[in-house]
């Protein structure tokens, strides 16, 4: 934390800052008044330095948690898949199979093309996003406080509250959409879809192009920003509730009650958001596969 007794604003800002590693530009005056003679890769010390790094930075915490949770997903499912028996399944296998069947059923309902990528993609998105969202239920101060004791200044443990993470996944989906649109319809077919719909006349090509491009670009951005917005808002409410703990016994107890309530409600939100991300991905890919 910034100091021993941070103000509410400082506390909130601290919780919203990522642990950033990036390149500070030459001539930048750091927090300890040293002036950099040349561009330097270093850990950011505070939000101002992180902002000064611009695009040349990594959110170490987001990437680490996201990678770790992805590895947990892969390890869990791989360990079950490796020993999957066709006989009577154990409890864990049963649980995993339930998820797989749920995802498979959802994909089969919505995606009518033939593509071996879509179902595993949907499963990965569903479980990975769910796990990332799940970190939201960990009390907001727990992990940052523990890491602060070992000298790590900033920590955001919910990767899906970082727009880089959600937009990164959305852009991945967008690339797949473009790839399959071109692969299935051909470049000509894809261009025709962008220019000849919804008004099938050459005079309307600019109008069509504008509308279709907006529609096309809106898909990945809405996909990424929806998840980010929901998780960010949820995290913000947890932080605001946590602020109440410093306001005396009465507010502390009230805050505890609120946190339990919000956490229970949030279980629904995180599952729903993971499911929505998965479903929209499948729908967008399904649209990319549709040949007119």
């Amino acid at each position: 934390m910034a100091g021993n007794n941070p103000t509410t604003t400082e506390y909130i800002q601290h919780h919203l800052s990522n642990l950033t590693y990036g390149q500070l530009p030459a001539g930048y005056e750091r927090y300890d008044q040293t002036v950099l003679s040349e561009a330097t890769w270093t850990m950011a010390h505070g939000p101002a330095e992180a902002a000064a790094m611009g695009f040349n930075a990594f959110h170490v915490d987001s990437l680490a948690w996201s990678f770790g949770l992805g590895v947990i997903f892969c390890w869990l499912f791989f360990s079950v898949a490796k020993k999957a028996t066709t006989g009577v399944p154990g409890r864990l296998q049963n649980f995993i199979e339930m998820i797989v069947e749920f995802v498979d059923g959802t994909v089969k309902d919505m995606f009518h093309g033939r593509n071996p990528l879509v179902a595993p993609l949907a499963l990965t998105i569903f479980i990975w996003v769910f796990l990332m969202n799940l970190m939201d239920l960990v009390p907001v101060d727990l992990v940052p406080r523990i890491l602060e004791l070992v000298g790590v200044g900033y920590q955001k443990i919910v990767p899906s509250t970082d727009p880089n993470i959600t937009l990164g996944m959305a852009l991945g989906v967008f690339i797949l959409m473009l790839y399959y649109s071109i692969k299935i319809k051909g470049i000509g077919g894809f261009v025709k879809e962008l220019t000849m719909h919804p008004f099938n006349h050459w005079a309307f090509i600019p109008v069509n192009l504008f509308m279709e491009l907006v529609g096309l670009l809106a898909k990945p951005f809405s996909l990424g920003l929806r998840l980010f917005g929901n998780m960010y808002a949820g995290e913000m409410i947890f932080i605001l509730i946590a602020v109440m703990y410093s306001a005396g016994l009465f507010f502390g107890l009230f805050g505890g009650l609120l946190q339990v309530g919000w956490a229970i409600f949030h279980i629904l939100v995180i599952t729903l958001q993971a499911f929505i991300f998965m479903v929209l991905t499948v729908v967008y890919l399904s649209m990319a596969h549709e040949d007119h």
Partner: peptide
């Protein structure tokens, strides 16, 4: 801030 994290996440995404 939008930064390299975006690219990193895309790589992780593809890998997983």
């Amino acid at each position: 801030n939008i930064n390299y994290t975006l690219i990193g996440q895309m790589i992780f995404f593809a890998a997983f």
